[in-house]
Design a protein around this nucleic acid. Structure first.
Lengths: 231, 231
DNA sequence: CGAATGATTGACCCCCTTCAAAAGCGGTGG
DNA sequence: CCACCGCTTTTGAAGGGGGTCAATCATTCG
């Protein structure tokens, strides 16, 4: 399972994402993506770290990648979870400000950042796609900001579960938590204990069900959950 | 002072910002900006609201504009404060998702959104500028997310003051709070009382000074403030 | 099976919220 | 000029939600 990494890449590129329509709408970009090399990641393995030179842009193929920032006191603030189809590594600077780490086994497709950017300089269509891609990313970040800014832990968890449902697609009544409680906690600005307690509370309210060692969550009452999220 | 509004615009466009280098680097865009009409705003007056059709893009000329989202329970979550030079109203959708409201007397320059976007479709340079503009905006939103995700009120206020210092430019040791305590509270996810109390605490710590009816803040110990912000 | 990692649950405490009151500050009019 | 009013800020006291510490349970893997 963890055999041959085509490890031509050590520590690379910058962070960002959200481009699920690139697959459908992007012609040239999608082509380049397809031809790029694949890198396999174990759980907790880094795609890149803060401060590394921004050489590549990645697209998530499988699994979930946590995009985060490290605070001076060692705490970790997760900015976003990147899902298959999402781009990570876009950005303006020469080195990246965020780190990217797999929350579970994952695969990313990597290709040159400078190639992409120089191409965009002459191709308005591509540049516009990048623009709209980042716009969506921005919107997602704002939604998270709204959720985290909310007072209660219930509100945050409810927002989080609904956001996952939107990304995850698949079964509309089931979401898979392909990350640890600590990852969720670092995303929502809570502690592991509060995350766990709040999930239990939601379960007691008959709003959700938690199964399979806490990784699969069934949404039993989505209207109620939406109400609780206060979106 | 509040005489003739060239009020060809009622409720308009979408939200976003951060483009302070457009003035220096943007040729065509800067030109169009210059020729567009100016709209004056009283404190608390809206530039546009959630749900309004996205017709114009605005650039702040004077004052501060709060970009916010309204929650279902009536609470208000401020996403960002737009300062002179910042763009608000960029976005992909046909109507905007956020509201924009002046926190004090302000002026904005407005011009057509469709014109800007159609121009970007053929001009890769302009599209790239928009892209980089949104990248910066995204970065700012992430920073806010980090700050809001932090535990303590002191950390949040410290981050906020330092962010203001970066935007405000001018005197590096002085920031002007051109907004009410309630605006700051809604940005940081705190209450007015906590904002006030925390400012008092920082003053007692000799880290800042508050003057002129609480609108002018002098940063006495920036290293300490940075330390407290935990960035 | 036993060790390691992660999840859950409990008890206690602190920080922020909530409720309440007072004090600044700016305007307007007598 | 000052009294009065509205708006905002500041400060105080009490309560609650989540953090912290700690123990138990569950799952995986050697």
């Amino acid at each position: 399972m963890l055999a041959s990494h085509p490890l031509e890449i050590g520590h690379l590129v910058v962070p960002q994402r959200r481009t699920q329509e690139h697959a459908t709408s992007g012609g040239d970009l999608a082509e380049r993506m397809r031809s790029a090399s694949i890198r396999k990641l174990e759980s907790k393995e880094h795609v890149f770290c803060e401060g590394d030179p921004r050489i590549h842009v990645f697209q998530v193929e499988e699994g979930v990648i946590a995009i985060y920032k490290t605070l001076s006191d060692g705490r970790r603030r997760i900015i976003d979870f990147a899902y298959p189809g999402d781009l990570i590594g876009l950005g303006a600077g020469k080195e990246h400000i965020l780190s990217a780490q797999a929350t579970c086994q994952a695969k990313v497709r990597c290709h040159s950042a400078v190639a992409l950017e120089s191409l965009a300089e002459s191709d308005a269509g591509l540049a516009l796609k990048l623009y709209k891609s980042v716009c969506q990313e921005l919107e997602a970040t704002r939604d998270l900001l709204v959720a985290v800014g909310q007072r209660g832990a219930v509100e945050r968890l409810a927002s989080f579960l609904l956001a996952l449902r939107r990304k995850d697609a698949r079964d509309p009544d089931t979401v898979t938590l392909a990350m640890r409680r600590s990852d969720i906690a670092d995303l929502l600005g809570l502690t592991i204990e509060t995350v766990s307690r709040t999930l239990s509370k939601l379960r007691a309210m008959r709003v959700i069900d938690v199964e399979q060692g806490g990784t699969t969550v069934t949404l039993r009452d989505i209207p109620r959950l939406t109400e609780l999220s206060n979106a």
